[in-house]
């Protein structure tokens, strides 16, 4: 339960628990929820996968789902029926996921080297142009790249590529692109300066793009 104890501090500062506010004429609070005994069966997989995609660790994802279900159970009288049960639960989980990232950032005392690795930097020539000999710029991904991104092969490659990012870089990218969190908020959560944050994102995108080019489209 260590996960929960620190989370409470942040809960107090951030009222992001179910935001679905009651409206006049709306059904009574707590109405419309299914039996909590059914929640794992109905939403367990969805919530677990939602967490796992983001935190990239099964044990952590399980813990976050458990925290979410218990918090939902305790707060079930606050459900106003303005959203579906699933999106209400997902809202709580989302908040737990953000808390997890915040705690992780605090525990990471060693600042990663924010500079670009040679693998990326070496694609530019002395003046900062993409090298022409050998050709080191982005290759043509073809007209159907967008369609191929719905396929399993793309997702497997993306998962692999994200796992190769430095952790802080991956966290910044996940928060920005999967959670669409405000940049200011991510900087505060990860404890990085704005300029550092832009470098992390730039680096993540450049590395992911190259990794996908090499591991997804070449096969």
């Amino acid at each position: 339960m260590t996960v929960l104890s620190v989370a409470m501090v942040d809960d107090a500062m951030d009222p992001a628990l179910p935001t679905d506010s009651p409206v006049e004429g709306a059904p009574a609070l707590g109405a419309g929820l299914s039996d909590p005994g059914q929640w794992v069966e109905l939403h367990g997989n969805y919530l677990f996968r939602y967490a796992l995609i983001r935190v990239r660790n099964e044990t952590v994802a399980e813990d976050l789902v458990q925290d979410t279900l218990l918090a939902a159970f305790q707060g079930k009288d606050r459900f106003s029926g303005q959203s579906t049960e699933r999106s209400w639960l997902t809202g709580i989980l989302k908040h737990k996921v953000l808390d997890y990232f915040r705690r992780q950032a605090r525990e990471r005392t060693i600042m990663e080297d924010a500079s670009m690795p040679e693998e990326l930097e070496g694609r530019f020539d002395d003046l900062g142009l993409w090298k022409h000999e050998p050709e080191s710029g982005p290759t043509d991904w073809g007209a159907d790249a967008a369609g191929l991104m719905q396929r399993k092969e793309f997702m497997a490659a993306l998962k692999q590529c994200i796992s190769k990012l430095p952790p802080r870089c991956a966290d910044a990218f996940v928060l920005r692109e999967m959670e669409a969190t405000d940049s200011d908020r991510i900087q505060e959560m990860l404890g990085v300066s704005p300029s550092n944050f832009w470098v992390l994102l730039h680096r993540a995108r450049m590395q992911l793009r190259l990794c996908l080019e090499q591991n997804w489209l070449k096969h």
């Binding site: 796992l52 983001r54 710029g137 991904w141 790249a145 967008a146 396929r151 793309f154 993306l158 692109e177």
Partner: peptide, 29 residues
Amino acid sequence: RRYEKQLHLLREGVGHYADPEVNAVEKSL
């Protein structure tokens, strides 16, 4: 030009990946 286009593709692809209903590689409970 490709770089710009591909970063936008990446964003789109990550959007699919982030959706538990669409993501085809992460396991279930």
